[in-house]
Amino acid sequence: MLSNEVTVHVNRGESDTLELESADGDRLDLEVSRSFRLTLRGHETPAHVHCRLDGGLSHIASIDHPNYYVGPGDVTSVPVEIDADGVDALVEGQLEVLTGYGSESVTVEVIVTPGSARIDVDESLAEPSRDEPEPPVLERVSSAAQVDPGTLAVGALGLFAIAIATMTAMTIASPAALVGLGAVIVGVAVAGLLLVR
């Protein structure tokens, strides 16, 4: 069975009993190429459960805490960490789960297969890329013309004001509109001279 999880029912039906899910009897074969999880599901009565690794599995795998208290209705996850670096052949071993001071046990026969090539990731992956993002259009134009971006923006706003004033003067076609257009042109010219100085 190729999986990354094994479930053991604790005290289902009567005290001091363990039952492997998806298994015949008290033994299960499990094939993995990476770490997996043992799930302990509590039923009628609480129990103390001990987990241990035997055989070749004890050399490449570890369990942080071997002893667990499983209450009724509890679901306890036990990570089984496998360090498969350098494993180039099958490794066989057992994960044994015990309760009732060792009077009841189930065994999971674990076969660790060599995984795909591992990619080493160093801390530089977390650092942002050194490539600078492309600057906005206004900054590119201002650097090409060697003009401050603020000055360029004010100049563009001035040209927009002259365009609006010109359209207004042409639409109204009165001497007052032409005087207003002249005032806008003079104002923009004076602002431009002050910015460039």
Rank of each mutant, 00 (worst) to 15 (best):
F36N: 12
L152M: 10
L38M: 12
V190E: 05
D120K: 15
G86V: 01
V32P: 05
L138Q: 10
A163P: 04
E96H: 07
L194E: 05
V196A: 15
H48D: 01
D24Q: 12
G71V: 09
V91A: 15
D26P: 13
I82S: 15
T39W: 00
A84E: 11
A144Y: 07
S58C: 14
S116P: 11
A145T: 08
I60C: 12
V154E: 08
G100K: 06
E21N: 14
I172G: 12
S33L: 01
P114A: 06
R197S: 13
I111Q: 14
N67R: 11
V80G: 06
V49D: 02
T7K: 14
G71K: 14
I119E: 06
V8P: 14
D148M: 13
N4A: 13
S62T: 11
T166E: 10
I172H: 10
G71A: 13
E81W: 03
D16M: 15
G71F: 07
L181W: 01
E31F: 03
G42V: 00
P135N: 02
H9C: 10
I63M: 08
E81L: 12
A23V: 05
V75M: 04
I162K: 10
V184L: 10
G158H: 01
L20G: 08
P66H: 03
S3N: 11
E92T: 12
V87D: 05
T45W: 01
N11P: 10
V179L: 06
P133L: 06
D74Y: 00
S62V: 08
T168G: 11
A176S: 10
V196L: 11
D131H: 08
R27G: 02
